[in-house]
């Protein structure tokens, strides 16, 4: 019966976890990799530690370092697995309409994937004009993701959120099930905590 219960749980999980609502903005261009192992990496940082510094190129043409925000802004780092995949395409467009929530919490958002700049440029163009920097951790492949411990064995990144305060300390980590989008309220709650 134990096996039955496990199988039933897997069935329920499959149908509950595989749902996503693709925006027509991406037409039929989203590649669906199917249900993936929820987490496939070993985290190398923890809350309370100084976040590993990084310098990456943005699709805006800028070079952005985490260090740039020290003593100035809180930083939310949003790793998403890959461009042109279902849940990822349904995550950053939501952040794009809440710039006011980031601003009111003295925070900036940095989006990172392991895709190269041309791919990120094409993909994010479908999302409208983004207010935040989108950074490429393509080469050396996934170095920043690996430094946080969120590089998966297939070379993609986890769906992960890190909230880093003005002192560079990691205040919140959400290594999310790759098949699901993090709930917005959980991130907003953590941003609001930074002011307390």
């Amino acid at each position: 019966m134990k096996k039955t219960a496990i199988l039933l749980a897997l069935v329920v999980c499959f149908f509950a976890c595989s749902a996503y609502a693709a925006s027509d903005a991406f037409k039929n261009n989203i590649y669906n990799p199917g249900e993936l192992q929820p987490i496939d990496s070993v985290l190398k940082v923890k809350v309370g530690q100084i976040a590993p510094d990084f310098t990456l190129k943005s699709i805006s043409g800028k070079t952005v370092s985490l260090q740039d925000f020290r003593d100035r802004k809180n930083v939310v780092v949003s790793f998403v697995p890959a461009a042109w995949t279902p849940v990822c395409s349904d995550q950053w467009p939501g952040y794009n309409i809440i710039a006011d929530i980031f601003t009111s919490n003295d925070s900036v958002l940095l989006g990172i994937t392991v895709d190269n700049i041309p791919t990120l440029f094409s993909w994010t163009n479908q999302m409208g004009k983004l207010w935040f920097e989108v950074l490429s951790d393509f080469w050396p492949h996934g170095t920043v993701a690996a430094s946080f411990g969120v590089l998966r064995s297939d070379g993609t990144a986890e769906r992960a959120l890190f909230v880093i305060d003005k002192k560079g300390l990691i205040r919140y980590i959400d290594i999310h099930n790759i098949n699901q989008r993090p709930r917005l309220e959980d991130l907003v709650r953590e941003l609001e905590k930074l002011n307390k």
């Binding site: 925006s23 349904d90 995550q91 467009p93 409208g128």
Partner: peptide, 12 residues
């Protein structure tokens, strides 16, 4: 209207 907060076309 079936929409999502995360859908750029819905926002537009």
């Amino acid at each position: 209207q079936i929409y999502s907060m995360y859908c750029p076309y819905c926002q537009a």
